[in-house]
Amino acid sequence: MIYLLLFFEFFKIGLFAIGGGLVTVPFLFDLSEAYGWFTAKELTDMIAIAESTPGPIGVNMATYAGFNAAGILGGLIATLGLVTPSVIVIVTICRLMNKYSCNRRVNTMLEGIRPAVIALIVFAGLELAKISLADLTHGLIFAILFASIRFYKKSPVFYLGLSAIVGIVLKL
């Protein structure tokens, strides 16, 4: 039963991949070696496609890898396998938090973490900036976009559409 196997393998990835979407990549390399569902070359293509299509990278990777292994149903089952641990773990944590949400210690802790989370977001932003802002033109577009986001406060979707058009017009 390849479907059962797919669900189980991606459930494992969902359970052990802690953090952003690209943490699933080493796990997928192991899968390609263990089962031959896809080659390392295909995996490289998958990463490129998962990074530049809508949707979180980790989910895109699961859908793609599952599809390569066993067609449409394979993609669906791999994706469901990936997200099931999140649902179980987070729902459990929420139930506990409801009990402790008024707890003073929990609140001190969460308040203390916030500056560290901001540091994490800074790093995620820098990683993206490294690959996205290749030269001076890109930097200039970034500066103009940033200024208009601060000034006009339109929705993020508006700015994503705008930046896609800028990319096409300027042949970035």
Partner: peptide, 30 residues
């Protein structure tokens, strides 16, 4: 080609949006 151009643009937009959120977060939390 045009898909590649569009995504190059979108990636810059994503960085700009994150930078803007960071400015607000910084003001409120640091």
């Amino acid at each position: 080609r045009y898909v590649t151009y569009a995504f190059a643009g979108i990636r810059i937009g994503v960085v700009a949006l994150i930078a803007s959120v960071l400015v607000d977060l910084w003001r409120k939390n640091i």
